[in-house]
Design a binder for these strands. Structure first.
Length: 203
DNA sequence: GAAACGATTTGCT
DNA sequence: GCAAATCGTTTCT
């Protein structure tokens, strides 16, 4: 894996990340997740992107070099992790929405067991917030280099089939782009907007 | 300086 | 199935 790999159109990187594994190394162990669902976010031209209104303290990582993490806190409750793409100065990132824990499941389960509820392994990293917890990512990991010692990405076999659909939870302005990608038959996040669930796995 | 708003999850009805 | 939780960042007065 080379830095240049991330220096491509964000949608391309997003597609190639499906099926790849992400490993985060922590003092208490390592957790590896195989990505099954991602979302691409562009820069100023993408109304749904955090970078739409320019560079701020929060999205600063998006403007940095590719191959790093952009982590932010959402709703004061949980974290969402992104993989930054493009050269410095070009804000774009791939939101990691769902994955399957393939190594370090015990540790991931421990991190999620704060509620005392043991769930099916497949649910360990299904959903953006859960994925971040499973990997042990917090705001402190914003800017973490995936090409460094703390974390790394390993490509999986090229996906036979990739499905695409509108992104989740974004304003209508950016909903027309089919930039949410996922692997068929995998752990995909079930999006339940407070009012009325839809989209469980819209083909 | 103050108010509004989320790239969601969980729990209760 | 539906509504609440919860806080940093952004935006407005």
């Amino acid at each position: 894996m080379h830095r240049d790999w991330f220096d491509r159109p964000v949608l391309e990187v997003a597609r190639d990340l499906l099926g790849a594994t992400v490993t985060v190394v922590r003092p208490d162990g390592e957790v590896t997740v195989r990505l099954t669902e991602v979302e691409a976010y562009g820069g100023p031209e993408d109304p749904a992107s955090h970078a739409f209104r320019g560079r701020t303290a929060r999205n600063d990582s998006m403007f940095g070099p590719g191959g790093r993490l952009y982590v932010y806190r959402h709703l004061g409750l949980h974290h969402c992790a992104n993989v930054v793409t493009g050269p410095p100065g070009t804000p774009a990132a791939v939101l990691l929405r769902s994955g399957e824990v393939v190594a370090g499941a015990g540790l991931a389960a421990a991190r999620r067991s704060v509620a005392g509820v043991v769930r099916r392994p497949v649910d360990l990293a299904r959903g953006p917030g859960r994925l971040a917890v499973a990997l042990g990512l917090t705001l402190a990991d914003d800017g973490l280099d995936l090409l460094g010692p703390g974390a790394h990405v390993v490509l999986g076999p090229s996906a036979d089939e990739v499905l695409a659909g509108p992104r989740v939870g974004v304003a209508p302005a950016g909903a027309d782009l089919a930039w949410r990608l996922w692997l068929p038959g995998s752990a995909v996040s079930t999006w339940r907007p407070g009012s009325g669930g839809r989209r469980a796995a819209d083909r």
